[in-house]
Computed example of a mutant assay.
Amino acid sequence: MTTLNVPTNRYRLLRTNFTDTHPLVIDTEATAEDTQSAGHQRIRAATDLLETFPCLTFEHADLKDISHIINALYLLVQDGCDLMEAAQHVQLQPAVEIQPQPIQPLS
């Protein structure tokens, strides 16, 4: 069986994981743009959901419906914030300069 030698700091845990196995993680080696895009997508989804509230009436809503909406908003916003923090961390890292290797003459 092949095991992966992955650096332990490559994956950042999402705060919304509720298990010890942490099935959802952020790949810290992803580009800042991709990480920001994923964070923006989640925050935009939460914003869109919040913008639908003026169209709804809670007179006929069940208490569990409100709980479901709050849970969805929490997951979207918290994951979005975790992703944005990870993207900011990537952007703040100093750029690693790759030194060119000298060309070896063919013998």
Rank of each mutant, 00 (worst) to 15 (best):
P7G: 06
Q88M: 05
T52P: 08
S107M: 09
Q78Y: 06
V90S: 14
C55V: 01
Q101F: 08
Q36M: 07
Q93F: 05
N9K: 01
E33F: 06
Y11W: 06
P23S: 02
F53E: 12
A95G: 04
T52W: 03
D79A: 08
D27V: 00
E33C: 02
D20W: 04
S67T: 11
I98W: 06
G39V: 03
D48K: 08
E97M: 12
I103V: 13
T35L: 00
A46L: 02
T35K: 03
L4H: 12
Q91K: 11
M1N: 11
L92T: 10
T57E: 12
I66P: 05
D48V: 03
S37Q: 12
Q88K: 12
P105C: 02
I70G: 10
P23Q: 05
N5G: 02
N71M: 09
R42N: 02
L49E: 12
T16S: 08
V90F: 07
S107G: 11
D65A: 06
A38Y: 13
A45D: 14
Q88G: 14
I70Y: 09
M84C: 08
G80I: 03
D82F: 02
P7T: 04
P105V: 01
I103R: 05
F58N: 10
T3K: 11
R42G: 02
E97F: 08
A87H: 03
Y74V: 03
Q88N: 14
Q99V: 09
Q93W: 05
A45G: 08
A38L: 13
T35Y: 02
Y11Q: 01
R10S: 00
H40M: 06
F53N: 11
N17H: 01
E85Y: 09
T57D: 15
D20N: 08
E51D: 15
T31Y: 06
I69G: 07
H89V: 01
P54S: 04
T21I: 06
L14D: 12
L73W: 03
R10G: 00
T2Y: 09
